[in-house]
Amino acid sequence: MLDINIAHVKCGQKRVLGAFDLTLEAGEFVALIGENGAGKSTLVNTLAGELNYQGSIRLNGRELSNWIPKQLAPVRAVMEQKLSAPFGLTVSELVGMGRFWSNETDVVTQQRAYKWLQRFDAEAFADRTMDTLSGGEQQRAHIARCLCQLDVAVPGEQMLLLDEPTSALDVYHQHSVLAELRRFTRQGNLVIAVMHDLNLASLYADNILLLADGALKHFAKPETVFRSEILEKTYRSPVYITKHPNIHKPMIFTEPRHL
């Protein structure tokens, strides 16, 4: 569904991403991991079409730069790391903005917005303004906006890029958001999410994409990537791996550091 074949991505003179040759399939939940500055956000921005790349990135067979914004909107949504919270914009209005590409009426848009707000346990603050919300609430509102944008009659072949979608969420909402994202992938869609919580990535992701120094190091199932020698090298910390008692996914333990 997404064919990445790039030589490099440059930001001015600096090479920020190295060569990439990767095909991501519809129905996959891909967790993008790596230490700070490894190029995770750069990769997300590249896939979102914001950076000039050398090579080709094809979404559903069509080169990224050949998509018209309004045609791309129902196929691809992006949640940035730094979220905007405009003064005086209500949560339901924000979520409704996801429908910009459609020609539906305001009433339909509002109904759709409420549907997604309910899914993210956010209908209670639907009429509050964004600037009055907590960080976690803002995050849920923006994820709801992204999924509202991709809400089409026949789902499938759609891509959702998220830069740290669960960083401000409590345990309950981490799971409800990730479950919702996984449901979205099961409809034949692709989710690429930057994640720092390796255990959550292990529980929800189909494949782990590990980046280091702007280069693709590993792309495989959590069981393959989450091995102590790989993670210790990536994060420069002692790592212990066990299995989750019920679902047999790798669980990662770290150690306190003493200075």
Binding site: A48, P69, K70, P86, L89
Partner: peptide, 21 residues
């Protein structure tokens, strides 16, 4: 006005929403 409104979220986000910024 509907297009201008998306600029509230920033130019990038407006593009992601389908606006030819």
């Amino acid at each position: 006005r509907k297009s201008i409104n998306t600029l509230l979220l920033g130019e990038r986000q407006a593009r992601y929403l389908g606006v030819n910024t």
